[in-house]
Design a protein around this nucleic acid. Structure first.
Lengths: 239, 239
DNA sequence: CGCGGTGTTGAGACCTGTCAAGACGTGTGG
DNA sequence: CCACACGTCTTGACAGGTCTCAACACCGCG
């Protein structure tokens, strides 16, 4: 159920058997939800956090004119609103982008876990800091990269993040987002996202068909996007 | 020395006398640095974090073409790279924007603090999550707000953040950034930042002179920027 | 078979960037 | 005290990237 989550944690730190049991015991409840489900609404008082066991989800903000900004993408194994454990209410929505499996983790269990396992407290603290690092990179993209670069950068990021959990190989991965949603991530219009994707295809950098993305020339794509994977902190070390 | 830092923490949670002592004992070293100092370089191995006791600083990323994106602004009392306690190296630089006072906090002391005071561990976890919330809002700005709105939004945010530490009154605050630096925060060119500032002045929303900002019509500015202060989590609650 | 969601294309408008020049203030050295 | 250099702010003309609006093709699904 949450094996992808554990795999992700273990990418960055060691987790003992004992700790693994404690983590598995966090989950109080599991449910299957459809694409487009509003899992957490902005401003709601939270008494639990949501672990995305399987599927795609996003943090999102609705603007007053009806447009939407997707603030961060989440994939299988992500603790999508671990930060609500500190914040108690969120400044954004959490929505699913595909059918998903959501595991619920009561905050009281997280509190007990962090008091009993200070190391896991640091591991989860790190997890929210990794989210923040991705966020920073998106800020850099939106502030200083062209539309074409932003699209390229997103594909570089996603392949790596999916590879960590074994959902991408060297070249390809399942990619269920619509062009509209890509545009909502990258601060552009769907029409322009479409043209930028065509440009990447024309340059022979990616292929995108049947909800599956193939990266044909990763070095080229990285060069175009000015992509460096430092911000994903893929190396393991003890914390 | 770090009284503004404590004031900021107490805005969101209660800190006991005992805890205050523990926090004060974190600092190993204090130094005065000039504007433009590179306090932490991207990628460096960190064994301490830096508390900005006084002054203005920023997280920044240099692009390959020499442009720069300021990723987040920091004001007096901010723990500018608390996240390096988890991450061990940063994906961005920390630079001062004015003359500043920097207090150094060894990670080993933070480790001891969090093991001995689980509540303070949560308080500091929250602090990094507050940074991340600001980051998200900047992502929203860059993705979905016009240049004019972004400038307006920044001034709304800064007045509130400075008010928390008593460095802004209802109307005005010292604001040392150049238009070039404003542009680097907001993902635009200095020329355009200049024009947007003029536009805000022309509309009678702000005044900006002698490194001091005055907000003439805060409701109007907020309306223009679509600003809501939820993301700053200004209410106090125990965590 | 029709419908809604998705992807595609074109033309024109608009926002923002680029380039270049000049004004202004401040600090420094002669 | 003046001359000068430098950073900052300002302005104008033009270029270019992205948005808007509209239409159409395609496809899966009810």
């Amino acid at each position: 159920m949450i094996s992808l989550h554990l795999r992700k944690l273990r990418q960055r730190d060691q987790i003992s058997e004992d700790e693994e049991q404690a983590i598995r015991a966090l989950v109080s409840d599991v449910r299957e939800v459809r694409a487009g489900t509003l899992v957490v609404r902005q401003g709601d008082e939270m008494k639990h956090s949501c672990l995305l066991a399987r599927g795609w989800a996003a943090r999102s903000r609705d603007m007053q004119d009806g447009r939407r900004q997707l603030i961060e993408l989440h994939v299988s194994g992500d603790f999508v609103d671990l930060h609500s454990f500190s914040l108690k209410r969120l400044d954004h929505n959490i929505v699913t982008l595909t059918q998903s499996t959501i595991a619920t983790v009561p905050h009281e269990r997280l509190l007990a876990l962090t008091e009993r396992h200070p190391h896991l407290a640091r591991v989860y603290w790190l997890a929210t800091n990794l989210d923040a690092a991705i966020q920073r990179e998106w800020t850099v993209s939106l502030g200083r990269r062209s539309a074409l670069q932003r699209v390229a950068h997103l594909f570089c990021e996603l392949r790596l993040r999916l590879a960590v959990i074994g959902l991408a190989d060297e070249q390809a991965f399942d990619f269920p987002l619509t062009q509209h949603e890509i545009a909502e991530c990258l601060g552009m219009t769907p029409v322009h996202a479409n043209r930028m994707l065509q440009e990447l295809r024309r340059k022979g950098l990616i292929r995108l068909e049947q909800r599956r993305a193939t990266i044909l020339d990763e070095p080229g794509l990285r060069r175009l996007a000015d992509f460096h994977d430092h911000y994903l902190y893929l190396e393991r070390r003890s914390r």
